[in-house]
């Protein structure tokens, strides 16, 4: 019995192990997350104090009365205290509750305004359109010069210290964008445009997860968020803007031919080639990503083989179909994809 009690005590401690790391509530790696975390801490302290006070009064009353009247007679004075001190205490308590609630309301309002003016200090330098699909993310980077625009999938990169205005859209059902380390949630709603501002302050790698149940593979709809120094970010942008290099080895060339003439190019695009379809993830710089299939598998030769050979085995229900490549075709296509650095 005692052992079970001890293990029950351990459970919350184990749950604490989930805090910290690349996806954690209460992270302070972004300006917005820090603001919300401050507000949350304030709420915890204020409500905790009041809870403690109520409990203290309750136990004091219980202890004083002992649970029953000593003389077992009806207590006539119980409902209308004539004691002056007690009346003052009741007024003080009511005033404290009202003041506390007002204080929390004001704190919420100030935090909300502070979040809303995230972009006021400097205009957002990063403009990203993020589109939710079943079950992957498409990111489109927009620049004042439209020839610099590019698409990528299941990852975004952000520089530290700049506000990033992220415009959110959905193609099929409602999704929700949530990078707990950087900010709160925002829904992606078909037919509407929503937005959220992220101002990351700390270099690192974070994980976003769709936070609105969106179908069979909701759990496998992750977004890899990389926060870089401005210099690293500029380097990444320059790499992403380049079109794909032409394949050179015979195997990769065979894979390129297959890709361009068969099912692959009906959905996927590779910048700089005839493949320009817009319904599947853009693969121009596939090998620069850490994961494939929206965080389902790590990126690499083996997982790519598995994913292309049998997508429905890896991620049942995904819109990437089983094509039935023979072994040579599979090796060729993966060889070509591996040139997409």
């Amino acid at each position: 019995m005692r052992r079970r009690g001890a293990s029950l005590m351990l459970l919350p401690l184990l749950a604490l192990a989930g805090c910290g790391g690349i996806q954690t509530i209460g992270g302070r790696e972004g300006r917005e997350a820090a603001l919300i975390d401050d507000l949350f801490t304030l709420f915890c302290i204020v409500t905790g104090l009041f809870f403690a006070a109520v409990m203290a009064f309750l136990f004091a009353a219980y202890w004083r009365r002992g649970g029953h009247r000593a003389d077992r007679m009806p207590d006539e004075g119980a409902t209308a205290p004539r004691d002056r001190g007690l009346r003052i205490a009741l007024f003080a308590w009511t005033a404290a509750v009202i003041g506390g609630l007002m204080g929390l309301a004001v704190a919420s309002f100030l935090t909300d305004r502070s979040l809303a003016y995230s972009t006021a200090a400097g205009r957002p330098v990063v403009s990203i359109e993020l589109i939710g699909n079943q079950w992957w993310w498409e990111a489109r980077y927009h620049f004042p010069d439209p020839s610099q625009n590019f698409r990528t999938a299941n990852e975004i990169h952000l520089p530290t210290g700049s506000a990033a205005m992220i415009t959110l859209k959905a193609n099929d059902v409602i999704h929700s964008f949530w990078v707990p380390n950087l900010a709160g949630k925002q829904d992606l709603i078909p037919g509407r445009v929503t937005d959220i501002v992220l101002t990351p302050t700390k270099v690192g790698r974070y994980r976003a997860q769709c936070a609105e149940y969106c179908g069979l593979q909701h759990a496998h709809m992750a977004l890899d968020v990389t926060v870089d120094t401005p210099a690293d970010y500029a380097r990444w942008l320059a790499a992403q803007t380049r079109p794909a290099a032409a394949p050179t080895t015979p195997q990769a060339i065979a894979g390129y031919r297959f890709f361009m003439t068969r099912q692959c190019s009906a959905c996927h695009a590779v910048a700089g080639t005839p493949a320009g379809a817009g319904v599947g993830p853009d693969l121009t710089h596939l090998m620069s990503r850490r994961t494939i299939a929206a965080g389902t598998l790590p990126n690499g030769t083996g997982p790519l083989h598995a994913w292309i050979a049998d997508p429905q085995g890896v991620k049942p229900g995904a819109n990437m179909p089983y094509i039935g490549l023979d072994a040579d075709e599979l090796h060729n296509v993966v060889a070509y994809l591996e040139t997409l650095k």
């Binding site: 003439t261 068969r262 099912q263 009906a266 179909p321 089983y322 094509i323 039935g324």
Partner: peptide
């Protein structure tokens, strides 16, 4: 043929 799958 070969642009989409038979299932599609």
């Amino acid at each position: 043929r070969n642009k989409i799958t038979e299932q599609q």
